[in-house]
Write a protein that binds this DNA or RNA. Structure first.
Lengths: 247, 247
DNA sequence: CTGCGTATGTGCGCTGCCGCACATACAGGC
DNA sequence: GCCTGTATGTGCGGCAGCGCACATACGCAG
């Protein structure tokens, strides 16, 4: 957790060659993202793409009934707002800050200009977008077939991968909203994990004690999504090793 | 169902201006897709993109347990194999022919050449890909919150939109595989729909009798996905009105 | 027409999750 | 150090969907 935030904490930005990065750098704006902030919602025109460094954003769907479900999460491995360069401009989902932190944002016009000009940036963003699709479609299958406890494990692991910290700051209520289940269901599953020594928690804080334990209790979806993300971004070279090496 | 298949039956191909289309046309190969054929599976390098005309393809995930679930379907409104131009080359899902029919296939090299050369084709394919993402993420939420009957209605409506025929040729067993539920669950839901006069079926054939009825029993996901697809491909102009006008 | 393979119908007990209604206990602000 | 809002624990009945075991019936191949 460096005192001075750097765009290089975001894997996509860090993967750009210096020449390309220098063109974008002047237009990158560091913003603080408080918990719960909505970066976009259905039908609202997106103005910026967000490259998270320490923040985590959930892409979630809110149904007519009020129920919600996360289709994917975005941390320092990715970017929020792919619909800008995909051409749709808006989406049917919302993007909500799930873990407070920072992100660099880029005005859509600069993003588009570089996307159309630079084959490398385009290639990078499209490959990331495919990883995002993998996450979404795997979540669809996971929601159908796996238990709350398995999904909680998956969610905790994916989230921890993005913050590189032992302790996550989030309430069970919020997790329930992401997974699309009852808060009580999360309480029960978390209780099991705590008794098993995998995690420990207190009022809004969850510490991961035993990653291997979580992995074995998780469904296959965690490993699959993680592997696919690694594959799709594996051949990119990092400009600096600052935030590279990844976990 | 014209006796002579034409690439224009596929909305994406039909949306290309003549100049662009003429470049691709020599490389489009008409192929018959029998029920159950697997166009690709996890980790297998894709050789062709498929533009369905009368066939429908399911993108589905098969879990370790053997259970499966569809994350999206592709008919004449789209293309199978977006991972080719997204840069991933492979996916974690499979593509299986759900309704036998025809498609035009295009070798990856020609596809990539035109994708990189023509801004219009690129724009078209990327916008379609965003529609596909909408379908995937909506399916994730739908799988979490909606009943088997609601999902069956959604599935029937989406499928019928793609074939423009009253009668679908598919067994309840296969539908169950797509939705990721038990075959008996589909039998029960289909029985309800039949008693309500929305559909009628016999051994592998389902006829839609009352679309409005299905829509009212369906979850919001059907209308949302359909609307978003229409929006994303609305500004494209069709070269010929043959297959345009949409349903 | 007959037979067989396959598609559909139906009934069972079981389980995981829901919706609700609380009880408890933590943590920051005064 | 107390108070209060909020986070977590727990127990209930209910139900949708599961897994299994069959019964039935359609329709094509012979």
């Amino acid at each position: 957790m460096p005192a001075t935030p750097s765009p290089n904490q975001n894997h996509l930005l860090a993967a750009l060659p210096s020449a390309e990065f220098e063109l974008l750098a002047p237009h990158l704006e560091l913003v603080a993202l408080p918990l719960g902030e909505m970066l976009y919602e259905p039908d609202r025109q997106l103005q910026h793409a967000y490259f998270p460094t320490t923040a985590i954003i959930s892409l979630l769907h809110v149904m007519e009934s009020g129920a919600s479900a996360e289709s994917a999460g975005v941390g320092n491995e990715g970017v929020v707002g792919v619909s800008l360069f995909m051409g749709g401009e808006t989406t049917t989902s919302s993007a909500v800050v799930q873990t407070a932190g920072h992100a660099y944002r880029l005005d859509r016009r600069w993003l588009m200009q570089e996307f159309n000009r630079s084959g490398l940036l385009q290639r990078l963003l499209l490959r990331y977008t495919q990883a995002l699709m993998t996450q979404m479609s795997q979540t669809a299958a996971c929601n159908r077939h796996h238990s709350v406890e398995q999904q909680l494990c998956r969610w905790l692991l994916l989230t921890q991968d993005r913050v590189a910290q032992r302790e996550l700051v989030i309430t069970q209520e919020l997790i329930a909203g992401m997974l699309g289940v009852r808060r009580e269901g999360v309480t029960e599953a978390a209780g099991n994990l705590q008794r098993a020594g995998c995690i420990s928690y207190r009022r809004g804080h969850i510490a991961v004690l035993d990653r291997a334990g979580l992995e074995s209790r998780s469904c296959e979806c965690y490993a699959l999504v993680k592997k696919e993300l690694a594959r799709l971004l594996s051949d990119v070279r990092y400009r600096q090793e600052a935030t590279a090496a990844g976990r």
